[in-house]
């Protein structure tokens, strides 16, 4: 199981960039941490979710 923003799903083996695209995230407006470590944008396409991963995807909106 992979936990994304608190919710667990069967996503082990899924590519991060594929997941972001299919979920409608704009890579320019987010920050992704896996197991408390930031994933650099350059690494999105080469990152695969592993069983037990805890993922936080922060989506930024404008205003301030």
């Amino acid at each position: 199981m992979v936990k994304i923003n608190g919710e667990s799903s069967e996503l082990a083996g899924v590519n991060l960039l594929d997941y972001l695209n299919s979920s409608g995230y704009n890579p320019k407006l987010i920050a992704v941490e896996i197991n408390l470590e930031i994933v650099p944008k350059s690494a999105y396409s080469g990152t695969i979710f592993k069983d037990g991963d805890t993922v936080e995807i922060v989506n930024f909106v404008g205003g301030g």
Binding site: L29, A31, I38, V58, F60, V61, G62, G63, G64
Partner: peptide, 29 residues
Amino acid sequence: DKAEAKAMLVNFVLEHYADKYLIAASGMA
């Protein structure tokens, strides 16, 4: 105020200054 700038700063600080505390804001309109 711009979402893209927020994301840029957050990613940069988390990547290069992971030892610093970072507080960001999103969604107050």
